[in-house]
Amino acid sequence: MRLRRRGVSFLLETIVTLGLFAAALLVTMGIITGVSQSSSQSREYTLARDTARQAMEQQRVLPYASIGSPPTPPYLVVVPFINNGQTSNLDFTVTITVTEPAPGKYKDILVTVGWKHGDLPRQIQLETSASNV
């Protein structure tokens, strides 16, 4: 009888220990996943901003008359990056919109960079002006 009670007690202790271990494991995995997601999004936004800045600079170095003329159609920028030793690519769509609020004086350059984070579309915009000097 005593042996049987001891066996039941041991079983309960094991179940409780396993439960605690599983709970701790779940919490840790949740934190790791969250950090990984956050890091991934942060990298995407950084690369997108760099891409937008490059596209913007490409327009700014043009002579005033050539900015936005002819209009640049949307294009892809493939950015390879290394994550955990594996090379991956991010496809950014760059759209450049040039408007001239004051003809002959200055042009507004709006660069929009869009991409997909999983199935979710993301985008950033950078804007600058080029004056006719």
């Binding site: 490059q54 596209a55 490409q58 640049t72 159609p73 949307p74 294009y75 892809l76 920028v77 493939v78 950015v79 496809d91 769509t93 760059v94 759209t95 929009t112 869009g114 991409w115 997909k116 579309p121 985008q123």
Partner: peptide
């Protein structure tokens, strides 16, 4: 929201334009 292109769905003209942009930016 601008339409997001992918290499799989992009038209031939878009791919050519993208290649040209890559050469321009040194990518």
């Amino acid at each position: 929201q601008i339409p997001v292109l992918s290499r799989e769905q992009a038209t031939a003209a878009t791919v050519a334009e993208s290649y040209l942009a890559g050469l321009r930016t040194g990518n």
